[in-house]
Nucleic acid binder design. Structure first.
Lengths: 198, 198, 198, 198
DNA sequence: GCCTAATCGAGACGGTACGTCGGGTCTTGCG
DNA sequence: CGCAAGACCCGACGTACCGTCTCGATTAGGC
């Protein structure tokens, strides 16, 4: 009715959140600090998000929009490519510090879990479907057998394996995800796919 | 020469920490509350651990000591077994609420990361080695080729895949790890192993 | 532009401080307790005062505003009156427990000393001037000789003698200040005044 | 029966207490710190004194042993002399920071009050009696009338006036006690004495 | 010249209060 | 009305001292 919310403010806040994440990390990131960086009052933050976690989810979510699955000619190459770019994403300081924290927080907050899922996790799942379809078109994988439930379960499994392994490698083992590792992991996954799809 | 630290206090504190984790979860767990439950002064906590994260790591770490790899007759069955028991462990409320939080925090604190690794992660790696040796004895896997570096890389990969996938399934996807899922995942892993070992 | 500090909070805090002083005394008075009594957060206390001492000074200072010098017809009677009411003030539990403590603390904190002086000590000095003027009007004391410096020194001396003696009697010697003692002390002071004014 | 307490420790502790008072002041003086300075365990302190206040009283008390009343030939001169030396004593940093603090603390601790009185206050009262006797011998004051009660009251009054005024001047007004001020104050006191003794 | 018991150093311990910090809400005027 | 500013309540933080308590290692006496 009266004054509309400033779209510029939204952008400024999310930018400020990301840069604060880079400089301070999740635990030392402060609502007051983000507000100050964005040249905005704390009230404005709380008018838009229920709290720190939700705001950070939205700030980090946009990073995942750049994930793509370019056609590299073979399933093995496609997997290697997505693993490398996913690992690069997860290793960025903004994401590194906040992803696990938000997931931890979401353990006992269903609303937050939903936001994480819709804003981050599900954004990646279509890549699995896309890669699968492409591999089927190439004849690298057998076509769907019409059992939708079985397909869903397999896709979820692949997703857990890829995302879980890469995140564990990056954040827990803290070892680099380079081409060599990606190739070996893709090889493993190819073998596994053959086993569960046969 | 002076008074030694009370071993009883250590035990009481770690017990209190676990029960507080179960009842309150990571974020509502308070140093003061743990101290009160343990019948101990807050100072005593800080004399032993630099902070909440380190204390919780030590409290949760002991849970992982009960992980075993009973011989179920085949590599496939062994994998299924360890996946199920590892998932059960990760799903326990003490672990569920704290593991991700601690890993998140460890992103910015090398000392904490080292503690997590030595107290939790590395403690489980011997299971991979044990399962591998057993499978080799059974003839399910080819014997070592004497390339220690290659072996280490493979073990690390297997570990990242198993731990990462199970954790992701339990804490991010929030789906149950039942026998069916374990069997499929083990199947996938068997195929993958064959691919990277051949 | 922003929200102004609550005047109600100020009043509530100082009231709470006085009642806590009466019930607990200086050393057992706690910032947290005062905050609770005032229905206010601890932060609000620290936003207004640097610490316990400063807050107590302000809380006790208002007690001294009620000191007056009613005209009793003669200098001797005026002195007796002010001595009695000053002693009564100093003996009140709020003042008794805190005055010395604050002065002790102010020994190595110039800012606190200034606050004590401006909030408590200097507020009473006008009583000496008033009594002196009245006595001069009555012809009991010779008129000013125009030497402002000499006058100031004399007033300060009288003040140190009256305040110091009464405080010492009440808080160190812990003997009652009754009419008999006040009469004798006033007599002494009259003789002294004659000696230094002659 | 067995080992006696170390006299060297006592001395070291009191010395350490005084030097800590000079450097840190009352409020920042710590039992642990005194123990460390004295090369002694905290236990040793508490074996000898009930607490910080009592220990400090004993440490400061010895300073008052050096107070004397040399015969300067006249009551006026004797008063000036004792005022100057008492003021010098009270202004020493060890005494300055601790005297008021201890008195404040003694407000609600009778045992401490007694210790202060016997260790510090009463040590000075004999000076009043001595000066009075000397003045009577010189004929400057009338001899005792045999009314012991009246004498006691007068001595107490003189004591409160002298001690109270000097302490107030030094610690509250924070003005120097020099020869000029001492002469004026002694003059006032002489006049007062004449008035109450007549 | 041993025995034995109190004393000593060191420092861990249970408490209590401190002063600070961050989260999230509420109030005030400006635009 | 939306907003920047910032006061407010709440609750946890990590620190500092207090005075007590265990330790094992000295020391004197008394025998």
């Amino acid at each position: 009715m009266a004054r509309p919310r400033s779209a510029a403010a939204d952008r400024a806040i999310l930018d400020a959140t990301r840069s604060a994440l880079v400089e301070l990390g999740w635990s030392r990131l402060t609502m007051a600090d983000v507000a100050a960086r964005a040249g905005v009052a704390k009230t404005t933050l709380y008018r838009r998000w229920p709290g720190k976690s939700e705001m950070v989810v939205d700030a980090v979510a946009v990073l995942f929009d750049e994930l793509e699955l370019p056609d590299r000619g073979s399933l093995q190459a496609d997997i290697e490519g997505v693993v490398l770019s996913f690992a690069a994403l997860v290793s960025r300081p903004e994401a590194k510090t906040s992803l696990m924290a938000v997931v931890a927080e979401s353990t006992h907050r269903p609303a937050l879990r939903d936001r994480v899922r819709s804003a981050i996790v599900d954004r990646q799942k279509h890549l699995v479907l896309q890669g699968r379809a492409r591999a089927q078109a190439r004849g690298e994988l057998p076509p769907d057998k019409g059992d939708a439930e079985h397909t869903r379960r397999t896709v979820d499994l692949i997703f857990d394996v890829v995302a879980g392994t890469v995140v564990h490698r990056c954040l827990v083992s803290d070892e680099p995800v380079d081409e060599t590792w990606a190739r070996t992991f893709a090889l493993l996954l190819m073998g596994g796919l053959a086993a569960v799809s046969g």
